[in-house]
Design a protein around this nucleic acid. Structure first.
Lengths: 335, 335
DNA sequence: TTGAAAGCGATACCAC
DNA sequence: GTGGTATCGCTTTCAA
């Protein structure tokens, strides 16, 4: 691999000049510029990032920490992050934690060791995030929380309006004429709680009341839990005719429970999920509330970069994006 | 951020000694070791990767180039790669190309600039891969192809037995009693072609013949194409009662076409996909052929690391893993 | 068992 | 406009 030295001697100039040509940090005569550029071309010279990073104390790399890469919800945010980063000539280090403390620590360390310029964090486990943010803050590494818990006050956050998600979902079912509308969600999750709040508001706006027997909370946002909660819900004598699930994955488990109960979707029971990650794949089509994941990723990256280059100042801020109802899902979830 | 110098002066030793303590590169007396370790702890010292990398010409980072992170098929391989890398104390740079030349070039450059130790490539676009492999080879960067075209001869490859995939799929339908079995796939794709070959073998083994009117090839492995081909296939007078789709996504589009034709799954038509990425989400359950993506990722990483540390020698080799029939899909596709 | 010092490849300041 | 050189933080000889 040729170095800046090779280029310099080959072009008969000093390394300072080569550096100037590459970075445009100071004027260079047209003649030398052309000569140097030719040599760079010929040798296929590429600056060594390690050396640059060492000298400058920066890497032009930002990290994106996400809990799971097998659930398309997060990769979609990643794409938003990547697009903005690339425009600004930054690269993205993808840190897939799979919620494993081992991996989180590993990445946390890597980020510090690599002089990463900034970090976008998407809930890598509820407790851990505070520790992580603190640890990064302490080292002077700018960070921002994307779709994470609302308890973080010390850094910028990008969120979706979860209350509105619930509102859109229950309103949709109410508007379709359902009177008995249920909700399945996750106990202890703020996201789920807010969605439930919106769910209740949606019912109220149609003159309906939320009934406790139609609400069921479980352990996590998984298909399994959706299935389990669905069975419980449908075991009630007065079973709902429409059900909101706190996310698409739970909605699919729920669907399964509905079928097992000998009922049909949507003839006997209407379902709606939240996320719109998987709804597009189901037949018959399931409605869902789309979360603008890509746009959230973009917003987060933009804000992070603004903090890094100093163009954003002031106390931590929260950026909140709006969800959108998708009644007959389109075929855009996966490619 | 404290440096090795700070640690050294704080502990009253030379930086050489601190380095020795950290890397175990030469014997250090117990007393000094303890002293140095204490200081490292107290200062929260972390070695600077940039400096290390610069000095050693290595980064202990491998890159994984994948075409899309929103399709769970690839992230699943990524997990295999990550697990093996971590065990060997390597980190993984995820390069999500989204099949965009812009991104591919960007990553190709980043990989060279960052002194990446090795690269695992999963088809970032058919033409590009040769160029990429060549470019990396030339720079002395070890690479390996994971689930890529068979035309690559110059580096190691990890593949699934695609012929067997097709065989398992058609055998399954034949065994279920179907006599008229169709196939939809992709024109010009080796993967699709091999799966088709296996499909034919499966039919033969049950004394059936592949009939041209039951085979339809399209442009790509997408849901849209599955849908389009499904319509064509079902327009034939003598329509098949069982259909193999070259992947799950096509199978879903196909399913849609079946429903549109007023037919029911599986009463009128049985479907089987290949990949087992999405089959688990469908109701009623769809059969699929599981591709051992996670294991393939592991195998690729293992082989790459073996090449890097020199324990694997000799000409490029091909590692081929076997697929597996999944009749009633289990709930493990997404978490 | 330890320390001094020579680089790794770039940037940027100071002269000219 | 251009060149020399100190420097970033670390690894690794070479001596002691």
């Amino acid at each position: 691999m040729p170095t800046i030295k090779d280029v310099a001697s080959e072009a008969g100039v000093s390394i300072a000049t080569v550096s100037a040509v590459i970075n445009g940090t100071r004027p260079v005569s047209d003649a030398t510029r052309r000569r140097v550029e030719a040599v760079i071309q010929r040798l296929g010279y590429q600056p060594n990032r390690m050396a640059q990073g060492l000298k400058q104390g920066k890497s032009r790399i930002i990290a994106y920490i996400l809990p799971s890469v097998t659930n398309p919800f997060f990769p979609s945010m990643l794409k938003g992050v990547e697009d903005i980063a690339y425009e600004a000539d930054y690269s993205v280090l993808v840190c897939n934690t799979e919620m494993e403390p081992r991996r989180i620590n590993r990445y946390s360390q890597l980020i510090r060791e690599m002089q990463i310029d900034g970090v976008i964090i998407t809930s890598p486990g509820l407790g851990v995030i505070h520790e992580l943010v603190g640890c990064l803050n302490q080292r002077g590494i700018t960070s921002i929380v994307l779709h994470g818990p609302r308890s973080i006050e010390s850094v910028d956050r990008v969120l979706v309006d979860d209350e509105e998600c619930g509102y859109l979902a229950s309103s949709y079912l109410a508007q379709e004429g359902h009177g008995k509308i249920g909700f399945i969600g996750v106990c202890g999750s703020t996201t789920s709680w807010l969605r439930y709040q919106g769910f209740v508001r949606g019912l109220h706006s149609f003159g309906l009341k939320a009934s406790e027997e139609y609400v069921c909370l479980g352990e996590g946002f998984s298909q399994q839990e959706g299935h389990r909660l669905g069975r419980i819900l449908l075991d009630n004598q007065a079973s709902p005719t429409g059900i909101v699930a706190a996310n698409d994955l739970m909605a699919i488990g729920l669907w399964e429970a509905v079928l097992e109960a000998g009922l049909h979707v949507p003839e006997d029971v209407s379902l709606i999920g939240i996320d719109n990650t998987l709804a597009a794949l189901l037949r018959p089509r399931m409605a869902s509330v789309r979360i603008p994941t890509y746009e959230m990723g973009r917003a987060a990256a933009k804000q992070l970069l603004a903090r890094i280059d100093g163009s954003a100042k002031g106390p931590p801020m929260t950026i909140c994006l709006q969800p959108e109802l998708v009644s007959g899902s389109t075929i855009t979830a996966l490619r």
